[in-house]
């Protein structure tokens, strides 16, 4: 499943080469967060890094952001090593972290942006001009004199995005930018992200919202337990998994799969549990699907609804990262 077409050197924006990160926890317990990740992201691309919690997404981008020390391999940004050449790399990259990281108690919203511009060496007058432009663009102008604790969750997200853009970076790295956001904010952030990408910025997005990745990303990579398990355009990945799926809404899950025969059938057919539904690859004419349906009926499991549809990125994700095997 894990494939990647060769990318010309002149097209590279970010290249991870055998990147590794091992954390040493309490009592010397070692956790391999990233295991030899090799991946290239093109200039101008909208790229999604997907994976369940603990897959190593935040650790991977943390190496570029200067927050994580890799234990092996390297991350290159336009050919520059993110560790050795961190200053120049940081100048080209804007990062919006997952956690709120705002200088909150003595700077107001406008000052936060101006100070951030200063860290990037932008002269005060230009810093003020850029801060004001971003405040207007992100609908924060009326809140420019407010403290961070006076902002709503959505405003804080927009401020963090504005902060990542204050130095006009070539690459924008967004770590779960819409996590916990309501639908309206999510749509608003999507529009902003699309606009930025359309302006030529390379966007690297981590998300566990597959709908978001499908909607925005030209290519995605799926990480699982620190390893790259798939990379490619979302539509290609879904084709590779198999175009059609049958979704069953059952009365009881997972006890519905209690019988050994049913378990064996489900595993054989590549079935997966998704949000309380049983998803079977194939169509309603597929013998394996029919066999499972009849076995469920024999076991007395009530089927509330059957949906036949084309597979989505979510199906790929579930099959590659958990499925029934785990």
């Amino acid at each position: 499943m894990r494939t990647e077409e060769p990318i010309r050197a002149s097209e590279r924006a970010i290249a991870f080469e055998g990147l590794r990160k091992t954390y040493v926890g309490p009592k010397g317990r070692r956790v391999e967060a990233v295991r030899g990740l090799t991946l290239t992201i093109r200039r101008g691309e909208f790229f999604g890094l997907l994976g369940p919690n603990g897959a190593g997404k935040t650790t991977t981008i943390g190496v570029i952001a200067g927050l994580v020390k890799p234990t092996g391999g390297r991350a290159l940004v336009f050919g520059m090593d993110a560790v050795r050449d961190y200053r120049r790399v940081h100048k080209l990259v804007g990062v919006m972290p997952q956690e709120e990281a705002l200088d909150s108690w003595f700077l107001n919203v406008r000052e936060i942006l101006i100070y951030n511009a200063g860290y990037f060496g932008i002269p005060p007058r230009e810093a003020r001009r850029r801060a004001d432009a971003l405040l207007r663009r992100f609908d924060l102008w009326d809140k420019r004199k407010s403290q961070v604790n006076e902002l709503s969750g959505g405003m804080k997200r927009r401020l963090m995005l504005a902060k990542a853009l204050i130095h006009d970076p070539e690459i924008l790295i967004l770590d779960e930018p819409t996590a916990g956001a309501d639908v309206a904010l999510r749509r608003q952030l999507w529009t902003l992200m699309r606009e930025l990408n359309a302006q030529g910025k390379t966007v690297l997005l981590t998300t566990h919202y597959l709908e978001e990745a499908e909607e925005l990303c030209g290519r995605v990579a799926i990480l699982d337990r620190g390893e790259l398990v798939a990379v490619g355009p979302p539509e290609e990945l879904t084709k590779r998994v198999g175009g059609d799926v049958v979704e069953l809404e059952l009365d009881a899950l997972p006890s519905a799969l209690g019988s050994d025969k049913l378990k064996a059938l489900a595993a054989k057919s590549g079935a997966a549990l998704q949000d309380g539904r049983l998803v079977l690859p194939g169509t309603l004419e597929d013998p394996k699907v029919l066999e499972i349906l009849s076995e469920l009926a024999r076991s007395g499991v009530k089927i509330r609804a059957i949906h036949a549809r084309r597979s989505r990125l979510e199906d790929v994700f579930v099959e590659l990262t958990k499925g029934l095997k785990s």
Partner: peptide, 8 residues
């Protein structure tokens, strides 16, 4: 994070 991810 502001300092660490900056070119300082």
């Amino acid at each position: 994070f502001d300092f660490l991810s900056s070119p300082l």
